[in-house]
Design a protein around this nucleic acid. Sequence first.
DNA 1: CCAATGGCTTAGCCTACGCTAACTGAATGG
DNA 2: CCATTCAGTTAGCGTAGGCTAAGCCATTGG
Lengths: 136, 136
Amino acid sequence: MHGAGEDYIETIYILQKRMGYVRSVDVARELGFSRASVSRAVGYMRDMGLLNMQEGGYLELTEAGQKEAEAVYDRHITLTAFLMATSRVDADTAEKDACRIEHIISPLTLEGIKRFAEDHRDLYEGIALPAEYHTR
Amino acid sequence: MHGAGEDYIETIYILQKRMGYVRSVDVARELGFSRASVSRAVGYMRDMGLLNMQEGGYLELTEAGQKEAEAVYDRHITLTAFLMATSRVDADTAEKDACRIEHIISPLTLEGIKRFAEDHRDLYEGIALPAEYHTR
DNA sequence: CCAATGGCTTAGCCTACGCTAACTGAATGG
DNA sequence: CCATTCAGTTAGCGTAGGCTAAGCCATTGG
């Protein structure tokens, strides 16, 4: 699973939560990619056992896919809050940066960041995470 | 200038400081790439006016290249220290993460991180930045 | 003096991941 | 009922940025 693939999985996860269903075209619109690009990516993810396509083109994450998505999403939130708390940037900027960093950060550093959050609750006071996360 | 290009420029800058000269082959060894890949990249960078090749294959950053390199290197150091101070990871881990993040972080967030460093000197106490920076 | 070594370059391949164009099939509406 | 629209797919293209193979040239040493 590489950066781009993680973006797809995460987007499917988020759209599922937001709308209750996800089709390829929804992912395409959300990410600003062509339907063709998404179609191919979905094929790859199906081959990797991360999702299935149901009747009517509805995408459903498998157990593995769900797990993967949650892991990425967790990094996403952790990093967004971390950047807002330390760098004091707005939610939108924090999210865009988090969205790129989440694919490349080492597990060790992320772990440290979570520890930092616990040890410095005061810095996190009053930061308002966006109610809804976008994906790019 | 994209991620890979920035890595090349930064490596040339660092090797110049470390050894007093840089040739393509030195860059290749440092980054673990083939000489051919570096040769092509050097060609691109020359075309972009970032460096010149002297007699004997010695690479010299132009004014523009130097400026670019310093900007990347500055991000590199800022991020390494930031990760060590917050996440409390070792210098090596911090650097590897910094090296990937430095290419994708937004100017705004970086600015905030610098402000954070000034406002939280205590967190930076006693962290030992590596005397020498590697580039991957 | 000739062969080996070291360094740069070119040619051509491969993968990842975007794209457009064009086809298919299902649903919808004048 | 036929035309449009919408969704998914396939085919083929382009760029970025790795790679190996192989050629060229200068230096060096038996």
